[in-house]
Amino acid sequence: MISLEHVVKRYGDRVAVDDLSVEIGAGELAVLVGPSGCGKTTTLRMINRLVEPTSGTIRVDGRDTRERGVEELRRSIGYVIQQAGLFPHLTVAENVATVPRLLGWDRRRIRTRVDELLDLVGLPPGDYAERLPRALSGGERQRVGVARALGADPPVLLMDEPFSALDPVTRLRLQGELLRVQSLVRKTIVVVTHDIDEALRLGDRVILLQTGGRLAQVATPAELLARPASDFVAGFLGGDRTLRRLALVPLHSAELRSADGAAPAERVDAGGSLRDALEVVLRSPDGRAAVVDGDRVLGVVDAEVIRRAAVTR
């Protein structure tokens, strides 16, 4: 869906993005992450041509972005920025209607679309449509920002640090919301963040950049944690990467002990992760927990089961 081929961006002598090649598939949520100055935002902005690459090719949906009118290209790509960048003089509904208006949709179609989008991001149109941005909380503004980006139903969504200005609780909730919205709309989404936890939580794949705009590793979150490609990657992931990876490995993938005899009193749902299981195992008086699917006991998990499941994958 989006492909970057040998993309380079230089500002004078400084190299912001250094020969970056990466493919992002349709319907994939890719997260660009790295320390500040790694070129992640520059990379994102090259996709909708807010920044022009020095060399290399960027294709969206197979078409070279340079061959398309820059405004036409941008209208086909949703764009969300930090603190939403809502138009303060326009109502929520008018903000969301921005791109449909640019595309010349008729009034009724816009109205229907706006209501649909506000519902999608969890802001009932009756309460929110006519409000001005300053009458919203930070989290609500960011939701409007997402609704606005989805305005004309673009196949691609670019999000630049969408949640960094929010408090931790709101951020966590909106990350969950994004995943929920994504499961409904299945867009190709590229998110930029400096927060590795956010990257691991959101990404189908994580594109990790290092200072100087070089690609450090592209991998799924689980792969990244299991097999960091370099010391830089391992360092960026932090010392507790094995622990963190547990949250990404589903419990049903573990080889459970059979539940012969008395099943342990502590229970953990089979739909959870190894991390959920570890939590229960550590709490359990005998270090064991029954893995259940509803009322059915599937087997027993203990520390050794978790350890084996964590290292064999």
Binding site: E72, R75, Y79, I81, L102, A149, G151
Partner: peptide, 27 residues
Amino acid sequence: VDPAVVEAARGMGMSPAQVLLRVELPL
């Protein structure tokens, strides 16, 4: 005018004239 607002306007595909007339001058 907040640069983020102008950036958002450009990023959504407004032409320079539209950014000026619909966003910057009103603000």
